[in-house]
Nucleic acid binder design. Sequence first.
DNA 1: ACTATTTGGTTCGATATCGTATTAAATAAA
DNA 2: TTTATTTAATACGATATCGAACCAAATAGT
Lengths: 166, 166
Amino acid sequence: MVRICRQARTGHWNIRLSQADEIGKLVFGFFNEVGIINQLATRQLESKLPGGLLISHFGVINHLMRLGDGRTPLQIATAHQVPKTTMTHTLAGLKKAGLIEFAPNPSDARSKCVMLTEAGRAFHAQAIGAIVPEFQSLLSDIPAEEFAAALPFLQRLRAYMDTARD
Amino acid sequence: MVRICRQARTGHWNIRLSQADEIGKLVFGFFNEVGIINQLATRQLESKLPGGLLISHFGVINHLMRLGDGRTPLQIATAHQVPKTTMTHTLAGLKKAGLIEFAPNPSDARSKCVMLTEAGRAFHAQAIGAIVPEFQSLLSDIPAEEFAAALPFLQRLRAYMDTARD
DNA sequence: ACTATTTGGTTCGATATCGTATTAAATAAA
DNA sequence: TTTATTTAATACGATATCGAACCAAATAGT
């Protein structure tokens, strides 16, 4: 697909413009699809979340359920690739909703540990319960194998982009 | 991967819970990667955009460049899967930045046609010029073929999710 | 023709996101 | 030890997103 060709007159090696254009369209189209799928999935999920909470909230709760609570705000922020100031705000919302509590961080007085409350765990169960039927309906039309096949590339791409940002 | 099994006692066909759980994790992981890739790509692109404009702005300009201007706000909003009220706001920003103009819609007095200005086209060229090097660096680590291989599934998934939302 | 409903767009208010600047604790340097 | 730098978190302000309510034009129903 990537064709390098040599300009006869100058002797320089270049990507032919039309080819580069094609590739640009390809990568661009890829990220475009990713963006729209994300948009659609976000809306779909958010419409099922109890109590008018948003993906940002669910994301944090889900993170704490999967990896265990007691993490610091900064850890959660970097895991979700959002600025820490955004996480401060999201956590404030979760606290107000009674889904998390803060505990002092024994190893650093500046920091905190984010703890799930019982209501937080219940919220997670409820949200998962609401989402599972959506997944089942999705999987009845698009087989799980295809998701499994697509996943490794996304993981690799994510890992690359993650390290490449400076 | 999807294993349907029959309960000997009742005779009912069911997805075994552990399997369903695995599948949930799979689909969930998929959308999670999509979300983070989108996040990273957005940040990356946004940091390169001239004039402090955002993806939402670039998205509209790019849309008009690709498909031709003269589209209505609502058409653009649905194409981008955002509420029309969001598009009103985005278009106001673009107008204030001098990148678009509004023309009356000859076939509907309530509506408008969104037209690109010269500055709008220049902005697009400049943005593309800033993005292309990013793509090239990306493609030097992840070959274009892999993007090409991943794209069809994403397109199919998007199309499905698009029609399935009600 | 006349009313009812739908549709394109904006306004408004509530909340989210994020960059900049700030505070306080931790760590490094002297 | 004292000072300088880094680091965790927050405060604040500017802008984005989005739902509800609204208006006016278009279309449907009668």
